[in-house]
Design a binder for these strands. Structure first.
Length: 414
RNA sequence: GUGGCUGUAGCUCAGCUGGUUAGAGCACCGGCUUGUGGUGCCGGAUGUCGCGGGUUCGAAUCCCGUCAGCCACCCCA
């Protein structure tokens, strides 16, 4: 056991946890489907270039978190660290610009070489959605509403808040960026070490620094909202109003930013306080520049991704699973007939458990452990009379019934 | 990548300032009950005390290293 451990940051997902993951994924899938999103499953690995181009050479993900390797044919391959890049690639590869808009839902494992922590693993799982080809705020509104809907359906909405901000279009953003760099450069001495390095490569990120000293500087820093040009402001207002009219509660957070260049306009996160430091459960934004940056036709996009593990930890209870029916042969003569009966029941849609060995007591015990609702006891004698014993495992009541009535009688336990 | 805490049975943990056969509860297996589970009673099995090295007459206990987990930074889902 000591030598056969899973790789750091990975683990085996089973039982309750597995059911939790499944539940999150299936709720996300069905609700997304209701909004017209079609599922897409891109490969879990791509040429490394796909991620380098979309995530940018300087992002943390690309510089230190990718699982990359050279395959036997000499290709540079990377296990996907997130889902959008693969979809953008698929969009271009398949010439999907021909029938816009495209609405995609995806689900699956992602890989990032990070130091494991609560809500942060090296192999983790996401569900996500993307809308490609819609330049107007309707897409932003729809996609955020979808996120809120999924959280509500999962019963975790009350544990989250929706934070939202606008990064403006390219013009607004670069104007703001200049002012911000100037401001922080002036106060460089007071800035934390981390933020000083961010000043050079990613000044916007200073805005959500966790350093206490930085907070004061940030509080007095020029605000993005003052630098949005008219188009950008109008866009943001429309998103905000649209969400309000759909009854979505929002909290505008002018310090919410996105690191990567191609992000513009809407940036949002559904965050929670109950998961410690890893508070974002759904995060996304608009990325009008992405497809073009990858070499495709200029196509606007907006999307989000959600962490299945994180959402799953928020779940307070799982939907109850179907209780099985235990089919129990009491003696050897009944063994093969029991198989037949179990098979018939399974084919008519019942969940049936039948153990492989053990006397009656053991099989009853097993039925109990499996949380079976009813046991069908079969013996040679009874089968000779064409009957079986039906035992209600909750009340303990049991009676002998004709085999022909079995399916009907069991329907009461469905 | 940086810092702090932790690592004893399948799980949750106890084991005081080093002292000889390493414990409990839950779970598991068996029996009371050879055709009846969930409660009860009785019994049983299970550990290279994370791994490697060191100090010592003696290490689960102290020291060093390493690996892993947790928490935070960083980053993000």
């Amino acid at each position: 056991m000591t030598s056969l451990k899973p790789v750091r940051g990975t683990h085996d997902i089973m039982n309750e946890e597995c059911r939790g993951h499944r539940h999150v994924a299936s709720v996300a899938r069905t609700i997304s489907h209701r909004y017209g999103f079609a599922e897409i499953a891109t490969p879990v690995f791509e040429f490394s270039e796909v991620f380098r181009r979309t995530l940018g050479e300087i992002s943390d993900i690309v510089t230190k978190e990718m699982y990359s390797f050279e395959d036997r044919g000499g290709s540079e391959i990377t296990l996907r660290p997130e889902g959008t890049a693969g979809i953008a690639r698929a969009f271009i590869s398949n010439g999907m610009a021909q029938n816009l808009p495209c609405k995609f839902f995806y689900e699956g494992p992602m890989f990032r070489y990070e130091r494991p922590q609560k809500g942060r693993l090296r192999q983790f799982h996401q569900v996500g959605v993307e809308i490609l080809g819609v330049p107007t705020p309707q897409a932003d509104i729809e996609i955020i509403t979808l996120g809120a809907h999924i959280l509500r359906e999962l019963g975790v909405a009350h544990k989250t808040v929706l934070e939202i901000n606008s990064l403006g279009d390219r013009e607004s953003r670069s104007a703001y960026s200049k002012v911000l760099v100037a401001y922080f450069t002036k106060h460089r001495d007071a800035l934390s070490e981390n933020s000083c390095t961010r000043l050079g490569r990613n000044p916007l990120r200073i805005l959500d620094s966790k350093d206490k000293g930085d907070h004061e500087l940030v509080a007095d820093a020029p605000s993005m909202s003052d630098y949005l040009n008219d188009t950008s402001q109008a866009f943001f207002d429309e998103v905000l109003n649209g969400l309000k009219s759909l009854g979505i509660k929002i909290s505008v957070n002018p310090r919410l930013v996105r690191g990567l260049d191609y992000y513009c306009h809407t940036a949002f996160e559904f965050t929670t306080k109950v998961l410690g430091a890893q508070g974002a459960v759904i995060a996304g934004g608009r990325y009008d520049g992405l497809i073009e940056q990858m070499g495709g036709p200029s196509t606007p996009g907006v999307g989000w991704a959600a962490g299945i593990e994180r959402l799953s930890m928020l779940l307070s209870e799982l939907p109850s699973s179907l209780r099985p029916i235990a089919v129990i042969p009491v003696d050897k003569e009944a063994q093969s007939k029991a198989m037949n009966i179990a098979q018939t029941l399974r084919e008519s849609g019942y969940v049936v458990d039948m153990g492989y060995s053990g006397n009656l007591a053991k099989r009853m015990k097993r039925a109990d452990r499996m949380n079976a609702c009813v046991a069908v006891l079969l013996s040679g004698d009874e089968l000779g009379r064409n009957s079986a014993t039906l035992r209600d495992l909750d009340s303990g009541e049991q009676s002998e019934i004709p085999l022909d009535d079995l399916t009907d009688r069991l329907s009461a336990f469905r």
